[in-house]
Design a protein around this nucleic acid. Sequence first.
DNA 1: TTCCTTGCAAATCGTTTGCATAATG
DNA 2: CATTATGCAAACGATTTGCAAGGAA
Lengths: 140, 140
Amino acid sequence: MALKYSRQRQVIKDFLMTRKDHPTADTVYMNVRTEYPNISLGTVYRNLSLLADIGEIQRLRFADGVDHFDADTSAHYHFVCTECRQIIDLKTDSLDPIMNMAGTGFDGEIKGHVTYFYGLCGDCKKSGKSRLQDSLCRLE
Amino acid sequence: MALKYSRQRQVIKDFLMTRKDHPTADTVYMNVRTEYPNISLGTVYRNLSLLADIGEIQRLRFADGVDHFDADTSAHYHFVCTECRQIIDLKTDSLDPIMNMAGTGFDGEIKGHVTYFYGLCGDCKKSGKSRLQDSLCRLE
DNA sequence: TTCCTTGCAAATCGTTTGCATAATG
DNA sequence: CATTATGCAAACGATTTGCAAGGAA
């Protein structure tokens, strides 16, 4: 159970800390491999899961069905652009009060909530970009 | 593009309307098959996606990574029990105001939000049930 | 007859796992 | 030395897709 140091885990976490776009495991793999060519996809998955389990990173799940990872473990909310798929951090006050709203008339115990927002990001809103030009704005 | 009637689609939708526990595609398949033995899994997936696309049902995605479906398309929120995995409808006032909260200081356009709650359902809270007895409370 | 829909099976995609080997403490 | 971590490849589970045949308009 005791955690031992691993160069791979360190590189993965270091890489994640340089990004604020919440990459997927595959994106992490692609990038880390340029610096550490022998690393395997399995190792990337294993370490991302491990880091998420011990709370050193956050695992995010949006509508695309693919896990995204965030080195910023502070409580914050996310916005997903439905055009370019970009994921943006929001600086929003805590929405925890909604748990009380949801809890009235409910006999269980609400311990948390998952919330994200979607719509058009600033760039896509400005350009009135269509889905056909999707890729131009896609980050990953 | 014009939609043609299909017995299969009707049966799938009818079944979904009888359930308030938000079944997965596989659960729909299992159940529909007792009444319509020749139906294929692919057809179930195709029709659930189609019905969701045209707004006749709702597709729900929680942390388990599997799609759940809900014939109730009215705006409402869900609670997922972390013990027994049960999904419960909440009668909560609209939380749409949180979109304004999230939108302050954001230059894009927030069009919607996804929110669900988790914790202990009434039964699991009462019984102090452990994960080991999970299956006793699992619905599907 | 047109073309939407089906059943079936194969394919895809993201993720997990078994295992022998390498690295850490 | 005891144990954790790795690379690799195979296995997995959920979902999608190609295709020839069936059914609705």
